[in-house]
Design a protein around this nucleic acid. Structure first.
Lengths: 337, 337
DNA sequence: CGACCTGGTGTTATCGCTAACATCACCGGC
DNA sequence: GCCGGTGATGTTAGCGATAACACCAGGTCG
């Protein structure tokens, strides 16, 4: 039986088209100085042979790959998962393959190891989804010279960074509640070491300060519905609580449930706003008013920033922020009189 | 300013160690015929220069890459997301990089395009997460000869496939309810075109048949909590319903909530079992008895099957199944008398 | 004691591509 | 009508690894 012959190479295309392999290369790379007729002949030959350029050979001679490495945590949290998914799509559309290095915990060693694996692969650039402080710390170890963009990372660090404008979203959510007539707004917060959570606290506080509203204590939680439920049980018992801004939709779901169990109707007695706009948010009872981050936009900005670094070596505007959008549904109403 | 000189190559290591580059290659690839002393000298040189082999060069000469392509849907559903995450980890541990090609919808064209992108990259093999029938259909277009493993795909197709044993998990869940004393078990199902959902229906029915229990009509839903809630509202009104097996935990959550709103206590009045064991399941009220698929095991099997194909060209046992585990919590009790 | 193996090493060719330079026909301008 | 420019193409030289073969010392064996 005959062994399957090797994949067609550039010379095979060249032979079929009656040109040199270099001309084939020129056609492939859209060089200007190729006669139209020749270009067509070459393209026909490429199609006929189902020729695909060998990326390894190209990478070898150019010293560049079309690969982007992403370091992400091994979690299924909505925010990071959406971000990753959006980034893969954006990079794919730009002709880059995305290699994902998963990490169990966001600590220094794991992240350093994941970055090393990517460097071994000679990725063109690396994106790190670093939503909490331990992850951000780990980036100090990454040697300079590797194009690197942090997503969801520490806004106080000078590394190139793209984030959702958490503070702005939180500000708008809070202001929306105040505008509805609430005297003040309580806040159920995510984990303190997450930048997302910190930014949302900051925006919430700013909105209260702007109208000289009293600032109640932050109710600390993690990102889970369970912890939102616990926080909600507490808040439901306090009659002065008429408006709650939750750091994400799952927390809000927990609060919604606690309120409902205590007989406090949403939005009639208590208004609730979330953050993330998870797919189910519109099906909560009542449909949840929330803040929608534009993950696709974050992904695009990230890719742009990274490719800028890849080509220029340096970046002029290292930090970019994407404004989220308030999505009004049915969980906000004026306070009861 | 001096331009950063190029990365060290094998010859640089060779020069430093006083050997030929071929000897360096032998050390790197663990060839037997290298003197121990030489091996150590070479290793020291590698370390000193922080040398990393150029994968492009290796791929060029060997014709193989260390890349695995994965095609997955652009969704954040718990099952597929966990699977992807687990696979990335497993492949990473085995020294393979994983390139993810996201697809917006699981239709023929999108999947074919994603597969083509991976073939362009000359991945060693491709994994397709194809949880519903349209995705499985699309695989008919994939040319033979590319190592390919389907995860969560159509069990009736002859392609190499790894799945959770949905039927077994559903069987056990249902049997657990029957063993607790329930006369029959109702089922809230996922979308009919998903294999996961179909397998769970099948297992549920088998368990009922095995004990000659009456088989109530399937309550059809999608995967969302919202649809589970709607199904639950209906079931809660029917006093003869004492046990419900839900096709996933989110559905179960919706059912739980509907039951609670109607004053039917879980597990005292109605028992509920879910599927997936999402992280929050232990924090539902009551903590949910559910079926836990072993995503890590699925990932390992998948990788194994793929690498077998890569090396052998053919596979002997093309279909593998991973048994899930029943996790007993507090949502199951004997029926009320 | 010379032929032969064998473990350790070096030399050379090669993978498929792009960059750089070479070639050549043809053009316009003085 | 010769010169230099320019557009279209071909030729050659690597990129950095592995594979195949060559080589050489030292031991084994007939």
């Amino acid at each position: 039986m005959e062994k399957t012959s090797r994949d067609p190479a550039m010379t095979d295309v060249a032979r079929l088209a009656g040109v040199s392999h270099q001309t084939v290369s020129r056609v492939l790379n859209n060089h200007p100085n190729v006669r139209e007729q020749t270009r067509l002949r070459v393209k026909a030959a490429i199609k006929e042979l189902d020729y695909r350029p060998n990326r390894a050979a190209r990478a070898l001679v150019t010293g560049k790959t079309q690969l982007i490495g992403v370091v992400a945590q091994n979690s299924t949290l909505y925010g990071p998962a959406s971000l990753l998914s959006a980034f893969e799509e954006a990079a794919g559309a730009a002709g880059f393959a995305v290699s994902v290095g998963r990490v169990k915990v966001l600590d220094r060693d794991s992240i350093a190891a994941a970055v090393e694996r990517h460097r071994d692969q000679r990725v063109a650039g690396i994106v790190v989804i670093a939503p909490n402080s331990s992850a951000a710390d780990a980036l100090a170890d990454v040697p300079a010279g590797v194009p690197l963009v942090t997503v969801d990372g520490d806004p106080d660090r000078p590394t190139p960074l793209v984030t959702v404008d958490q503070a702005k979203g939180a500000f708008e959510a809070t202001k929306h509640l105040i505008d509805a007539g609430h005297e003040t707004v309580w806040h159920v917060s995510g984990p303190a070491d997450w930048f997302d959570a910190a930014g949302r606290v900051q925006g919430w506080r700013a909105a209260l300060d702007a109208t000289s509203a009293e600032v109640p204590p932050v109710v600390a939680a993690d990102w889970s519905a369970a912890s939102g439920y616990r926080a909600g049980q507490m808040l439901a018992r306090m009659p002065e609580v008429t408006a709650v801004f939750c750091s994400n939709d799952h927390l809000a779901l927990g609060v919604l449930r606690a309120m409902s169990e205590r007989g406090r109707r949403v939005p009639h007695d208590v208004s609730v706003v979330g953050f993330d706009d998870v797919p189910e948010a519109a099906y909560f009872i009542p449909p949840l008013t929330t803040v929608r981050p534009d993950f696709a936009a974050v992904a695009h900005e990230t890719l742009g920033l990274l490719l800028e670094q890849v080509s220029d070596g340096e970046t002029t505007r290292p930090q970019r922020t994407v404004a989220p959008m308030l999505v009004k549904r049915d969980s906000v109403a004026p306070p009861p009189r």
